[in-house]
Design a protein around this nucleic acid. Structure first.
Lengths: 339, 339
DNA sequence: CTGTTAGCGCATTCAC
DNA sequence: GTGAATGCGCTAACAG
């Protein structure tokens, strides 16, 4: 059975004063005689008094709680985002209420309403992959609850964002492949419907353009394609692919597998760059070049942004783009530099 | 600015009844004339009324909230535990308040008090690596807040546990290595002070004993040893090691690296089994044999246990041991079966 | 300086 | 059936 906690009234009774006096003494605000204040404080400490935030919330209409909706927990990227968020919110004295959408919009909607019901002071969310309903987002905005969207962008939702600069990230990767002399660069796209997929593809195209290289349709594959493996094989055998840039590190590993089967040497014959900098990238052989998105910093930044928004609703509504870092490892061929 | 939500009183005023009546109509409990009940319900829906859980909490002394303390978020294992917990709590209508200790006991203590202050209905926690203070745990118990400890066990704390059967998990791995004919089996231990480290080591010893193999001190290394890499090298070159069982998958990858340097073939000359079944295990080459701890199930089980405890404080205090699964992959040599 | 009053939103007595 | 009263724990406005 949950034991009754000692309340302000308990210590008021014990000291023959009113709860108001106790409240004032404890909060320092009002004027209380030095003698009583000390008495009260010492008794409070002795009794292990801890204020009830529930009561305060009811009164103040603030809960000191941030709601968080993530598409999944298991992905390394999101756990880093979570860690970044927590590092900021805990320091700021906020609790973190956590939900997942499991990449399912219905669950996202449910989670959103749950958080709204819980009267969180603000919401951080990454929208799920399939998103065609926006009423729940509208409801958040209507309720006046500050909202910051993380990682994934949607044209339909006008709110603060903290996202990764996928365009530049992809551009830097493909630009690098071009620089080291790759002539036929394969790209495997991510899930449809995701801003990240689109932007990384755009970065790929732009880098090709910069180097005056044609965009070859047969070198652009879809990760959702059931025949993906076959098509990669075709690219590797028929189309003289000597470079690859994939939407994720795991897709890069698919290329590793096929290259190994086909006895194609990485990086000598094929340079590969993935995306996300999964920890596995440095353990696999050859170590994988990839694009680091600074997920921890992304989480921290979005939390800071949200807290600002909570404390000052006039804070500008902007899309913050986080720089990516190109991590070149063993999977890219080394070009002799003429010195 | 957070907009004022519509309350039970608002709809009472609109309908010329008292809040009591509205409350009864909405909760179904008391007797309300059918006409009024319908009126009230329809207006409530129209106005988008949602009960304020804060007010209910204050009244009921229950928050429908579970507190969770994890040593870290980033580790794959803990994110699976988290996912398992969430899958249960969300279905049961509980919120999840999340904290991390960062493997630091002071932060663990702080988080514990935060959760207690927040009046969570129960706490799930994995104690941090270094643990020598137990007052905060005692405080949880004194407060009457149900507590279930996950993954790591401590003799000092008497409370429900859900842990993995590390002994059997380790035993099954080393037993397998013996069965396929390994004669000199290296073990790399985990961090001191952890029940998991101890139990896996015990499992290692017991398997050796079963096969009448001597425990060789020089084949047991400490992961915290600054000279670990050198010592592994020594084992591999001098001590005819032909099998290895490590506290974690990542330690197994250290062996992979050294074996590659020393031109020792895995699994032909050296069979390796890790622990935890990190996703990376199936991507690395050769794919790593390992022990799966069912972290999702562990999370789910601990959440179920806690909910039971919350609903019935008389629930037995026990240590639930979760079965492990030995995952044999390419890193173990194949023995011809005589058929 | 300190006590009284009131109210945050709700559910639960107890009268009528 | 329904309203009035009470209180969960706390703070704030107002008296004194």
């Amino acid at each position: 059975m949950k034991k009754k906690r000692i309340s302000i009234t308990d210590i008021a009774n014990a000291l023959q004063v009113t709860p108001s006096t106790v409240s004032r003494a404890l909060n320092g605000g009002g004027k209380v005689s030095e003698k009583k204040r000390l008495e009260i404080i010492s008794l409070a400490k002795k009794l292990g008094y801890r204020p009830n935030p529930i009561a305060k919330s009811l009164l103040a209409n603030r809960t000191q709680t941030i709601g968080l909706i993530l598409p999944e927990f298991t992905h390394h990227f999101y756990s880093r985002v979570l860690a970044g968020i927590e590092s900021i919110t805990s320091k700021a004295g906020y609790q973190l209420l956590i939900c997942t959408s499991n990449e399912n919009q219905n669950q996202e909607i449910k989670s959103t309403l749950t958080l709204l019901d819980a009267r969180v002071d603000g919401i951080l969310a990454t929208i799920s992959k399939m998103n065609d309903k926006f009423e729940h987002i509208q409801e958040v905005m209507d309720s006046g609850t500050p909202l910051v969207l993380v990682d994934r962008f949607s044209e339909e939702i006008e709110t603060p964002y903290v996202i990764s600069d996928d365009f530049k990230g992809a551009f830097s990767a493909v630009d690098y492949l071009c620089q080291i002399g790759c002539k036929n660069i394969l790209h495997i796209k991510g899930p449809d419907n995701l801003s990240t997929t689109f932007n990384r593809f755009m970065g790929y195209k732009e880098a090709l353009r910069k180097h005056n290289m044609p965009l070859k349709e047969e070198l652009v594959l879809e990760s959702s394609d059931p025949k993906l493996v076959e098509k990669i094989r075709l690219c590797l055998t028929r189309h003289q692919v000597d470079g690859a840039f994939t939407y994720s590190d795991y897709l890069a590993f698919e290329i590793y597998k096929l290259a190994s089967q086909l006895k194609i040497q990485i990086p000598e014959e094929l340079s590969v760059i993935g995306y996300a900098d999964e920890p596995i990238s440095t353990y696999i052989s050859p170590t994988l070049s990839t694009v680091n998105q600074q997920p921890f910093e992304m989480g921290a930044m979005s939390a800071r942004y949200l807290l600002n928004k909570i404390n000052d609703p006039e804070v500008a509504l902007e899309v913050k783009n986080l720089e990516t870092k190109l991590m070149i490892r063993e999977s890219c061929k080394v070009v002799e530099t003429q010195s």
